[in-house]
Computed example of a mutant assay.
Amino acid sequence: MKQWVSALSAGAIAIMVLFAPGGIAFASEGIATKDQNQVLNIAHRGASGYAPENTMAAFEKSVEMKADMFELDVQMSKDGELVVIHDTTVDRTTDGTGSVKDLTLEELKSLDAGSWFDESFTSETIPTLGEVLDEYRGRTGILIELKSPSLYPGIEQKVADELKARHLDNPENEKIIVQSFNHESVQTFHDLLPQVPVGVLLGYSPEGISDEQLDRFKAYADYVNPSKSMIDALLVERIHDYNMKTHPWTVRDRESANFLLEAGADGIITDYPDYVAPHPSK
């Protein structure tokens, strides 16, 4: 697992090249870039600046924009199906109301998940995790966030089963990362599929991230992914000292993308994949 964190095969679908200090340049258009090495460009909930978040349209747009990966959020329907949606209710991003966990897959699938963003996306529905994996495996990397897993007992096993059923649990063949703000859930998933890289998400804390936390994380995690407001070059260096990498979130302006590149972040989670220059091979 750690080998994938440091190197990727030529056939990898999520293309990661290690950051080398220095050598940073900015394109004349203001797009964040580097002279030779490239951070991982991760489309947040798909290219959610250009299409409704967590829909197939947003994921397709991220591929078109040559992002290395897209991030998505996984929850569970009333009847135990894994669905891709960020909020624990459907109110904000669909024409329905209610909690995700109280609606069946059929009920969730009947909702319009696109017109809130723009009328041109009225055909978009809430996808299942299986649908996304089937459509995009081999085309791009996928960063799976376990969203509010305490509401969904057993969700870690269900996600693991979906990956194993598609042979996506072998990091030599496919590039998948699983992460969560719930670090106990991350550890549970790691125990189930130790070969799949995992990350811990952290919200902003004025106390920062202690060495004690990093020492705990390194026992199971490959990534420490804090709010971008916590990142500076020193924190990136400390995370690297513990043999982990960092993908800060969420970039919505070019200045933040450039700052994170200067700080040495290994990946950038962004609503706008075009704010980070695509890898030369894309």
Rank of each mutant, 00 (worst) to 15 (best):
L8C: 11
L8I: 11
A10C: 12
G11S: 10
G11R: 12
L18K: 12
L18Y: 05
A20V: 12
P21F: 07
F26E: 11
S28M: 08
I31M: 10
I31T: 15
N37F: 06
Q38V: 09
H44L: 04
G46F: 02
T55A: 08
A57D: 10
A58M: 08
A58Y: 08
E60I: 00
V63P: 01
D73P: 00
M76R: 09
K78Y: 01
K78G: 01
K78N: 05
D79C: 05
D79R: 14
G80R: 05
G80Y: 03
V83F: 05
V84H: 00
H86D: 02
D87T: 10
T88K: 08
D91T: 14
R92M: 11
T94N: 01
T97D: 15
V100I: 12
K101W: 13
K101V: 04
T104V: 13
K109N: 07
S110H: 03
S110R: 08
G114S: 14
S115Y: 03
W116Q: 10
S123L: 07
T128G: 07
E135Y: 02
R137W: 07
G138P: 13
G138M: 14
K147L: 04
S148P: 00
P149H: 03
P149F: 04
S150V: 06
S150Q: 14
L151G: 07
L151P: 02
G154N: 15
I155N: 01
V159I: 07
A160N: 07
D161I: 13
K164C: 13
R166T: 04
N170G: 02
E174G: 09
I176H: 01
S180E: 00
N182D: 05
H183E: 03
V186A: 02
Q187N: 10
T188V: 12
T188W: 00
L193S: 02
V198Y: 01
L202K: 06
G203N: 08
P206H: 04
E207Y: 15
D211Y: 12
L214K: 13
L214A: 09
D215Y: 14
R216H: 12
F217Q: 05
F217Y: 09
A219T: 10
Y220Q: 04
D222E: 09
N225W: 05
N225F: 10
S227W: 05
K228E: 08
S229G: 13
M230G: 15
M230A: 07
A233Q: 12
A233K: 15
L235D: 14
R238D: 09
H240K: 03
D241C: 09
Y242V: 07
Y242R: 13
M244Q: 01
K245G: 01
T246L: 00
W249N: 06
T250D: 09
D253R: 06
R254Q: 06
S256T: 06
L261V: 14
E262M: 08
G267T: 05
T270V: 06
D271G: 03
D271N: 11
D274R: 05
A277N: 01
H279Q: 11
H279G: 02
S281C: 05
